[in-house]
Design a protein around this nucleic acid. Structure first.
Lengths: 114, 114
DNA sequence: TTCCGTAGTTCGGAAATTCGGAACTGTTGA
DNA sequence: TCAACAGTTCCGAATTTCCGAACTACGGAA
């Protein structure tokens, strides 16, 4: 398995962030992850209620989130721990992530995390 | 020519906004439009400095921006006047557009509008 | 009225991207 | 050593994007 790539904070592009979160599944996953207390594993985030995301698609979603700079992934034993980079990101793009999550949260019938 | 479609404020989806602005050319166009004083025409926004966008691509960019709810387009004689829907949008998704434009503006060597 | 120029739209096919099943890798526990 | 599990990679099918060429809409000149 190739080593995981994480962009440095200063290399993160807002377009990449917007692109990553413009996919409804990725946005749902990210919102869940941002709301969760501990670092979420891929499989724990796979269930979106209305549909279970196939493994390969999930893996790709996490790759997109990771390489856009939104999350940090780390192998821990057999599974992968993912956590948001919210704090860092807010330094670089003040208010951006917050505004996106708020906008998403305002949609009816969503963000019903656990 | 088909009539232009503009979504009602309450039908605007944040995913659509993020998608529309995740394309570097559209983001550049939108930033220019948001910075411009009058409503910009398509051709006035076509020149991105490093490249001139083909007409058909431009037309499609404006369609995406319009149908995502980011801009309002209105035919005025032979040309098309475009204006942002910033104020309305800020009501629905507080801080979102501002944060995106700020993030984009922080990139080095951009937003050098005229 | 017809004709011309300008501004933008639509069409259609080539190129690029996304999706997801099947096979694979890396890790742990028995 | 083996089996099971979590996630990754591969690769072909389906979808989307891109953009040149043809087209439409409007306004002005004659």
């Amino acid at each position: 398995m190739r080593p995981l790539f994480h962009p440095a904070l200063e290399d993160i592009k807002p377009e990449a962030i917007l692109y990553a979160l413009s996919d409804p599944e990725r946005l749902a996953i990210y919102a869940k992850l941002a709301g969760a207390s501990g670092g979420g594993t891929c499989s724990a985030l796979a269930d979106l209620g209305d549909r279970v995301i196939p493994k390969s698609s999930l893996s790709n979603h996490f790759k997109v989130l990771r390489e856009s700079g939104l999350i940090r992934s780390e192998r821990q034993g057999v599974e992968m721990r993912n956590q948001t980079r919210c704090t860092e990101l807010d330094e670089r793009f003040p208010g951006l992530i917050r505004a996106i999550l708020t906008a998403y949260g305002q949609l009816p019938g969503q963000l019903k995390t656990d």
